[in-house]
């Protein structure tokens, strides 16, 4: 594996391997010395064209625990805002010795271009591209689900038969896209819920069951409900009439939360709009995995960086 751009091209074996390596990485977090020497002498660049403190810190932390040298390049206030292109920026960073580039970009396909346009030869990790994909988020979600369901016995397993309901702005959600492909590959049963206005074209061809109404989806008694962040500006574009109506129809309200099976997990990629797509009682309950998702994010990103950077070395040797 040279790049991680989308979860679509991960087969079941590769996906389970990433999750298993992440288990190893998670185990080291319990040690007194958390650092591994795996990427000593390697340089990982975080190239962020879009603000995302959480994802950036998670990748930084992952790279540092693997002993890589980490350079973080935020586009704001840099030469990028002076008109330097994605191509020039990436070539500059590779000239400085980057072995892997973790890229977050507001345009869909930016990571794909960096990997395949022939501009540079470095491993590319997609840390979120526009409204396309966010593969490490999906991997950490799958990792979180697998751990909750299988506990210490998780290694080697997939998510066969796990029913996951994903709710919200599917149209603009890179988290949803990455989760759909990955969860389906891992054998999970995926249900998507969104008003018709927020369902992407062609959703009927995805390996999912689509519902317009949340209550229909919750009636399937899912193992997990994943609430997506809803952006308030979507109202202006007439995707839905008001926050109140959205919350009433597609929010995980206290009433809906109370009616769920007692072991249904509540997931959210963060940051949350409490009171809009998710009630505090759901977000703060023991069934919420929100903080575990953050912790697991570091393990997953360690696994991905390790497999891309050290893994490529192994293959060459």
């Amino acid at each position: 594996m040279k790049h991680l751009l989308t979860t679509r091209d991960l087969d079941r074996e590769a996906a389970v391997r990433i999750l298993d390596v992440a288990e190893e990485m998670a185990a080291t977090a319990d040690r007194e010395v958390k650092k591994l020497p795996a990427l000593r002498g390697k340089t990982v660049v975080n190239l962020f064209f879009e603000d995302s403190t959480r994802t950036r810190l998670s990748f930084e932390s992952a790279a540092k625990r693997l002993s890589a040298d980490v350079i973080t390049f935020s586009a704001k206030g840099s030469s990028v805002s002076k008109g330097e292109s994605l191509k020039d920026t990436a070539q500059t960073l590779v000239a400085m010795g980057a072995d892997a580039i973790v890229v977050r970009h507001p345009a869909s396909g930016a990571a794909h271009r960096l990997a395949h346009a022939g501009w540079i030869d470095a491993s590319i990790v997609n840390a979120g591209d526009g409204t396309h994909e966010h593969p490490t988020q999906a991997l950490l979600d799958a990792f979180t689900l697998r751990r909750r369901i299988h506990g210490a016995d998780a290694r080697g397993r997939a998510l066969d038969g796990t029913r996951v309901v994903i709710v919200g702005d599917i149209l603009h959600s890179r988290v949803a896209r990455s989760n759909v492909w990955l969860l389906a590959t891992l054998g999970a049963e995926v249900h998507l819920v969104a008003p018709r206005t927020l369902q992407p074209a062609g959703i009927d061809e995805w390996p999912v069951t689509v519902h317009a109404l949340l209550d229909d989806a919750l009636a399937t008694e899912p193992h997990a409900v994943m609430m997506l962040r809803i952006q308030r500006e979507r109202m202006v574009d007439a995707y839905f009439p008001s926050e109140r109506e959205y919350g009433r129809m597609w929010g995980l309200t206290a009433e809906r939360f109370a009616a769920l099976p007692a072991d249904t997990m509540v997931m959210h990629p963060g940051p949350m709009n409490r009171g809009l797509e998710i009630a505090s009682v759901a977000a703060d309950s023991t069934r919420s995995t929100v903080l575990e998702q953050v912790t697991n994010g570091v393990s997953i990103r360690m696994a991905v960086l390790y497999l891309l950077v050290a893994g490529v070395e192994e293959e060459r040797a």
């Binding site: 869909s108 396909g109 591209d129 526009g130 409204t131 396309h132 994909e133 149209l171 890179r174 896209r177 992407p200 074209a201 062609g202 959703i203 061809e205 574009d237």
Partner: peptide, 19 residues
């Protein structure tokens, strides 16, 4: 067609490009 990037269809939905 505000912000539109490519033909609206299954591929625009998959690629995350405005249709």
């Amino acid at each position: 067609t505000e912000g539109a990037q490519m033909n609206e269809g299954p591929l625009s939905g998959e690629l995350g490009l405005a249709g």
